[in-house]
Amino acid sequence: MAAVDSSPSGAPAPQLSDISHAVDLEEEQIARRKRAEEIGKWALPIIVMAAAIWFWDRIVVWNEIPHFILPRPGLVLETLWADRAMLFESLWVTVKITALALLVAVVGGVGLAVLFAQSKFAEMSFSPFAVILQVTPIVAIAPLIFIYIESKLVGLLLCAWIVAFFPILANTTLGLNSADHNLRDLFRIYRASRWQRLIYLQLPSALPYFLGGLKIAGGLALIGAVVAEYVAGSGGIDSGLAFRILEAGYRLNIPRMFAALILIAGTGVLIYALTSLTSYLLLRKWHESALKREQ
């Protein structure tokens, strides 16, 4: 404490004008590297992707590979355009199942996590089921599901839900229990009800964890929807992209297989981008993960 008492002493402070503005080479170098990284972040993936596609095209031409074995990228695009009615209709089916499954996973996962957070005994009783569902490969469960469930749509939904809901449940449970201990005490001292503690303390604490789970679950819901459709196999008016790939495979329509594949991959990327954006928007004000590091 004495440190503050003592009057400021020592050498007089240098005048501002005395300080020359020498260029710091290291700082300059760091700044230059940063600018390069900034550009590279966008430019590099595009360049490399374009090069890879060009290379794919060249391989087909150089080796004279027939299009029913490996089509040229241009032909894939043509097929995508020519079959657009059928492909996009299937895409819509797959997207619908994925989105619905994700929605139910969010509601179910968060709901169950809240239940677990309210009662340790509920968690002890039911979490083994959640783990078993998670660790059993969906392809192994799906055939059974399609035996017991008439509606193909409901079956697909159930499969996609099973794979998607666990990361949400696990992460949200972790998040609900991660609320600061002193804040918990403070809530007790202020005589907060269980409900108030949940709404004002536990749910906000869990939000970053939940959003992490959502990012994983989004991708898994798509995988679940596609894999389950492979297992279901049957066609019909409401066929998703997985069935289109199967069907095109039987007919050796390789370009259409590629076209459908591109749509699935694109959907996956889009889901990831959307969940990442949601996460960023919700956390940017306060959470470390969404903050730009200074310096």
Partner: peptide
């Protein structure tokens, strides 16, 4: 009661 802990114990989201 009002309480002050060793850490500020604020809610970061608020």
């Amino acid at each position: 009661l009002g309480v002050v802990f060793q850490e500020p114990t604020l809610m970061p989201w608020a």
